[in-house]
Amino acid sequence: MATFRFDTRVTQDPDRDWAVLTYVSRIPEWFPAVREARFDGTHRHLTTSDGTLKSLVVTKDDALRRFQYRFVEGMPQPIDFHLGAIDVLPDASGSRVIHSQEILPEALAPIVERAAGEGIAGIARYFAAHV
């Protein structure tokens, strides 16, 4: 199984960061590959230039500021296992945002690693511009 973890520190309050990162329709504001995002009550639907990804929301814990999801459709080959997570933790200067991924088959690892890296970089850019 391939596992990745990326993180960034931002100067905003953890609750503010959490609100932005978990509001599905705002994903295109901080994740450059996503053109449109919507939530149907169970799944997130993320439209990219390559198509639409569908992810099942596993956990949205406002007290822990932990969001977990599983891609269930839209990857270029079948997924045996996937779990993505975004955690927002208090930090002395604001927040620490952690974006982690686990994926099988490992052949999907380069796609997921690149996307998670772009996502965390987008989070850093978004919050730097919205101080």
Score class of each variant (00 low, 15 high):
residue 98 I to S: 15
residue 90 P to V: 12
residue 74 G to S: 06
residue 42 T to N: 09
residue 40 D to V: 07
residue 108 L to V: 06
residue 36 E to I: 08
residue 57 V to D: 03
residue 98 I to W: 06
residue 131 V to F: 05
residue 43 H to I: 02
residue 116 A to I: 00
residue 46 L to I: 07
residue 31 F to E: 10
residue 84 G to V: 00
residue 24 V to N: 13
residue 110 P to M: 12
residue 83 L to D: 00
residue 120 I to A: 06
residue 82 H to T: 01
residue 107 A to W: 10
residue 79 I to W: 07
residue 122 G to I: 01
residue 67 F to V: 02
residue 92 A to Y: 02
residue 30 W to K: 00
residue 50 D to E: 14
residue 34 V to G: 02
residue 90 P to D: 07
residue 28 P to S: 08
residue 74 G to E: 04
residue 88 V to C: 07
residue 31 F to C: 14
residue 60 K to D: 10
residue 105 P to T: 11
residue 99 H to V: 14
residue 43 H to L: 05
residue 76 P to V: 04
residue 50 D to G: 11
residue 85 A to C: 13
residue 51 G to S: 04
residue 72 V to G: 01
residue 77 Q to V: 15
residue 36 E to C: 03
residue 33 A to W: 03
residue 104 L to T: 11
residue 96 R to H: 09
residue 121 A to Q: 03
residue 29 E to S: 11
residue 64 L to Q: 12
residue 101 Q to F: 06
residue 96 R to V: 06
residue 128 A to S: 11
residue 72 V to F: 12
residue 78 P to T: 02
residue 65 R to H: 05
residue 73 E to S: 07
residue 47 T to N: 03
residue 109 A to C: 08
residue 84 G to P: 10
residue 117 G to V: 10
residue 46 L to E: 00
residue 93 S to N: 14
residue 65 R to K: 15
residue 86 I to Q: 01
residue 75 M to I: 08
residue 70 R to A: 14
